[in-house]
């Protein structure tokens, strides 16, 4: 199909839309959800309140899964054991976000990372924020393989959520 073929479709701009040139209807769905956390993640969230990170181990392949799961994705059999992993680890990859979940600009840039926790199987990372890291050290890639530790909320402020860890920070 050559460049000069005229294809169907009628483009319009957001301005046309705002000025009412485009007939439309609008609706805001008011859907709310409650997600039960399930067997593995309920224990995980409960342990976060205690300032601990819990994983599940498969005795067949030896994998230590974090976040934990009751079945081994690899062996497709039940995992066997609860094990604690450390709240320290190593940065697998990190980036500097200038935008939030709704794509709006953030006031302060946010550094987020995939962190491989000590005691979990190799490559078994989790997503979290990094604190006390200069965005420049992300851009020049010094942050890769950096040793980090969790900074927890005060025990009385924890609510059983991934945000009970405020962020991970470099270990001096």
């Amino acid at each position: 199909m050559d460049k000069n073929v005229k294809l169907p479709g009628t483009p319009y701009s957001s301005d046309d839309f705002k000025k009412g040139k485009i007939p439309y209807v609008e609706d805001v769905p008011k859907a709310r959800y409650t997600w039960s956390a399930g067997i593995a993640m309920s224990r995980f969230l409960e342990e976060l309140k205690n300032g601990r990170i819990v994983a599940r181990k498969c005795h067949e392949c030896g994998r230590v899964y974090v976040p934990p799961r009751m079945f081994c994705s690899y062996c497709f059999r039940p995992t066997d054991e609860w094990v604690y992993v450390k709240d320290t680890g190593r940065v697998n990859t990190a980036v500097v976000s200038y935008i939030g979940a709704d794509r709006g600009k953030l006031g302060e840039p946010l550094v987020v990372a995939v962190i491989e926790l000590d005691g979990a199987s190799e490559g078994m990372g989790i997503l979290h924020k990094l604190g006390n890291v200069d965005p420049e050290d992300v851009k020049n890639r010094k942050v890769f393989n950096m040793r980090v530790r969790a900074v927890w909320k005060k025990p009385e402020e924890r609510e059983g959520a991934i945000t009970d860890i405020l962020y991970f920070e470099p270990i001096e």
């Binding site: 997600w35 969230l45 976040p67 990190a94 980036v95 939030g100 992300v138």
Partner: peptide
């Protein structure tokens, strides 16, 4: 994931940026 990822304010571009940076590294 509503338990591990969403509470951190995850944006779709995070996952790409994390992958791109790992690939570059």
């Amino acid at each position: 994931d509503p338990i591990t990822d969403k509470p951190l304010g995850v944006n779709l571009i995070w996952i790409f940026a994390l992958e791109m940076h790992r690939y570059m590294y």
